[in-house]
Design a protein around this nucleic acid. Structure first.
Lengths: 149, 149
DNA sequence: TTTATTGCAAATTATTTGCACATCA
DNA sequence: TGATGTGCAAATAATTTGCAATAAA
């Protein structure tokens, strides 16, 4: 069983929407709550499924439009873990994602691991890395071990 | 005007296809020639357009099926420069791609720049990076300068 | 009442797949 | 002849968009 969404966090986000000329309704509140409950790394589809438990008519278009509104507000960002659907998470929870090509396992890595690379690419190529938006691919230890034998 | 495809290279690839039970026909030969002419970093659409100059009925499905055959053969690989269509290039021409989020400019970087990062992620997280398949995003110098003023 | 939001259907983009027909070996 | 390849149409998958109906302020 998932813990009930932190009402405080939900209210905070709702307040931001309202401050920007947005309105509040059950659909939107349910979606924000589902998002807070999930705690990040959810797909639009995941969210729709969660929200539909209490709000069966929630349409994908509505999910996407709300996610977009929250991204515009700077509350959310989305990123790509591979060829499949985007995942959304809170903008203040920033880290890199390493995705195993074989099993799909996601390793989270603090940004600091990329500092040196970022500096080098900036210096040598004048290119300012923006990590986060696409994951880095590779093979996780477990899959490497398995195929290595 | 583009230089005529190196016949030698085309023949070499055709030979590989044939050695693997593949057959040859004008459509396929034209596609391989277009690929060699382009020299890499082409989308399936680009190729279709090029091939249609001499082979107007070339269908996208045929392009994709041929590209797939060439990937299976290890001649080609495809990679993602962003949200848009995949680009294909010869498998023996390996390097990293940095894509500017603002202008789309692509900077090519030798793999060696990533050696240290690869080693660190391997050691610390047991994750074996496979670069190449997805580009790294960021901002190029020109766009940084422009927005910086 | 005015403007934002929803729900539904239809459009989009990049690929993929089923199928009958054509064709290379 | 027989397996492979082609062209076309239809199917996917993840989003996006137009629009009329609905509801928040």
């Amino acid at each position: 069983m998932k813990a009930a969404a932190s009402t405080a966090r939900v209210d905070e986000i709702v307040e931001q929407l309202r401050a920007n000329g947005g309105r509040m309704n059950t659909a939107r509140r349910a979606l924000v709550a589902a998002l807070v409950d999930a705690g990040g790394h959810v797909t639009a589809e995941d969210l729709a499924t969660a929200v539909r438990r209490t709000h069966p008519n929630m349409h994908m278009a509505t999910v996407y439009r709300n996610l977009e509104a929250l991204e515009d507000l700077g509350v959310l960002t989305h990123l790509h873990l591979g060829h499949t659907a985007s995942v959304y998470h809170f903008a203040d929870d920033c880290h890199q994602h390493l995705v195993c090509q074989t099993c799909g396992h996601v390793v989270e890595v603090p940004d600091r691991e990329f500092d040196r690379l970022t500096k080098r690419l900036g210096g040598t190529y004048g290119f300012h890395l923006t990590l986060h938006h696409f994951a880095l691919m590779g093979i996780c230890q477990a899959c490497a071990d398995e195929s290595g034998q």
